[in-house]
């Protein structure tokens, strides 16, 4: 039989590790992708003396890539310090899984985001968050690096699709270099909104496409 995924992805898909909820977690997050509808929940238990992830579990309402990435991310994060775990990115997860199809990047990024959000949730709950900085073009660009271009599996910034970013008076304007009628235009817009809107001082996000 032939499958569109690596052996490792299939193995984690069939037998996902660390599945389930943690009762009274120290940090948790539920991430959803408006583009494909997938969701992932991540729960962490933290050893507060060492700032180390003692236990991590996940749940997935998603496709094979989403399930496999959720599984691998728990394996990668367990035992790491919060700072180490925050550095786990999509590339590392994807490599640990023996590669993922580019079009599936956004389903798997979700699990990575889930872990980061769960850590952030822990930090917020425990007063570890540093002062809130005002949103800048740099911060917006950094977040756009998490939005995938489904055609290549690479992010919008790296594939030079972000032609302009403006931040003024709580309004963020982003110009993306694809036609508005493009196959993925709506998905990309939804994902940009999802990444930028939660910034504390942003009231409105405008996504424009070049025609």
């Amino acid at each position: 039989m032939k499958f569109p995924y690596s052996e490792k992805v299939l193995e984690h898909f069939k037998h996902p590790r660390n599945v389930g909820k943690i009762e009274n977690p120290d940090g948790n997050a539920l991430e959803g992708s408006p583009a494909c509808g997938d969701m992932v929940a991540v729960y962490i238990k933290v050893d507060s003396d060492k700032n180390r992830i003692e236990d991590v579990k996940f749940e997935s309402y998603g496709c094979a890539s989403n399930i496999a990435t959720g599984s691998i991310i728990t394996e990668l994060a367990k035992g790491k310090t919060l700072d180490e775990a925050k550095k786990i990115d999509w590339k590392e997860a994807s490599e640990a899984l023996g590669g993922l199809p580019p079009i599936k990047a956004h389903c798997s990024v979700l699990a990575v985001e889930g872990l980061r959000s769960a850590i952030q949730n822990y930090e917020e709950r425990h007063g570890l968050v540093k002062e809130q900085k005002p949103t800048t073009v740099e911060i917006v660009r950094k977040r756009l690096k998490k939005v995938m271009n489904p055609l290549s599996g690479l992010d919008l910034v790296r594939t030079n699709l972000v032609t302009d970013v403006e931040v003024e008076g709580g309004v963020v304007r982003v110009v993306i270099d694809i036609p508005s009628g493009h196959q993925f235009a709506n998905n990309i817009r939804d994902e940009i909104l999802e990444k930028i809107e939660p910034l504390w001082d942003v009231n409105q996000v405008v996504v424009e496409f070049t025609e």
């Binding site: 039989m1 995924y5 509808g37 997938d38 309402y61 496709c63 399930i67």
Partner: peptide
Amino acid sequence: FVEGESITLHLDM
């Protein structure tokens, strides 16, 4: 509460 591609892949296997 479940996703279709995951179902099809499991069924395929």
